[in-house]
Amino acid sequence: MRINSGVPRRTVLVGVALGAAAGCTDPGPPPPPDPLAALADRARADAALATAIASAVPSLAEGAGEVARVRGEHATALKAEVERERPPVSTTASAPPTTPPAAPKDEKAALKALTDGLTAAQKEAAGLVPALPRYRAGLVGSVTAACASLREVL
């Protein structure tokens, strides 16, 4: 062990005190994003696309309408859970306005866009379930199951 470090003890103590003081005021790195926020964003985007397809492709109107309804409810429930855990700092801030997505006019392409979206959403949600807190595991498990079930009505 080196006894004489060459740094006067007083300097070290001052340095420690400054570091501690800095720790009090420094907000530190922001907390990691809530994983459910990404699920909520995806649900909202899926609902918007399904709404656009429901009006652009009459043959898919019924199924796409179901996707829009269910994924819209997912977005609402997931956002509520994110905000329950971490209330938003400003209540006036809202999501930036999004331009409605362009729906593929072609039935085949539209159907593929919907099913691919549901498959990706199911996978993303399922991947979170094993490690989530219990209440959230139930909610996200239901979202997973709903995405898989929606493919049956397309």
Binding site: E66, A77, G138, S142, A145, S149, E152
Partner: peptide
């Protein structure tokens, strides 16, 4: 109503 929004709820 073939697909509930939250199956299992």
């Amino acid at each position: 109503a073939a697909v509930p929004s939250f199956p299992g709820q």
